[in-house]
């Protein structure tokens, strides 16, 4: 949770502004491509284009303001401490791997079924994270991974698929 009292690093202003700017760019691009938004008259109804334009304008201006403010601050007073950008990047490898494997797992559910794919996913990641933390002997870690997989997958299977009948197989 960001600390509300701290004012933001100017480089963060630029990064956040760019992130929001990407959203508004995608939004404008998609809205521009939807011809029926612009060409059809809807009578008393202002049409499906009013709110998108309003919101996208606010978003674009806000994003621009963030980037401009960050740039201004850097020009006025260059930040002294280095390493803001690398702090953003530092630990991202594991989350990226995690998302990639999560996508692979969801695709695998359709092909080899819920239990096998979930078991593999859970086992590999519990073992890998345990290994990364490095707490306990490999043997303990291994049995924790087995136990975690059995309990986790078993419980979810029992509650969602067996009891409630969610059609994931």
């Amino acid at each position: 949770m960001p600390d509300p009292s701290r004012s933001h690093d100017p480089r963060n202003q630029i990064a956040a502004g760019s992130f929001l700017g990407i959203w508004s760019a995608i939004g404008w691009w998609s809205a521009a491509r939807t011809t029926s938004l612009w060409t059809v008259e809807y009578g008393a109804d202002p049409g499906p284009v009013l709110l998108p334009i309003l919101v996208l304008t606010i978003l674009s201006l806000g994003a621009l303001a963030l980037v401009a403010e960050g740039t201004r601050q850097i020009l006025v007073e260059p930040p002294t401490h280095k390493g803001y950008w690398s702090s953003l990047r530092r630990y991202t490898l594991t989350p990226v791997l995690f998302i990639a494997s999560l996508l692979a797992y969801v695709i695998a559910i359709e092909f080899i079924g819920f239990i096998p794919s979930s078991s593999v996913f859970a086992f590999v990641w519990i073992a890998a994270l345990g290994f990364k933390i490095g707490e306990g002997a490999p043997r303990t870690l291994f049995f924790m991974a087995i136990a975690g997989t059995l309990i986790g997958v078993g419980l979810i299977y029992f509650v969602f698929i067996y009891l409630i009948g969610v059609p994931l197989r």
């Binding site: 995690f98 999560l102 797992y105 969801v106 979930s118 996913f121 859970a122 990641w125 519990i126 994270l129 345990g130 933390i133 924790m144 136990a147 975690g148 309990i151 986790g152 997958v153 419980l155 979810i156 969602f160 969610v166 994931l168």
Partner: peptide, 13 residues
């Protein structure tokens, strides 16, 4: 680490 993975599975289901 076990809790995290179980939460991830719960998110998917």
């Amino acid at each position: 680490h076990i809790l995290l993975i179980i939460i991830a599975l719960l998110c998917v289901v």
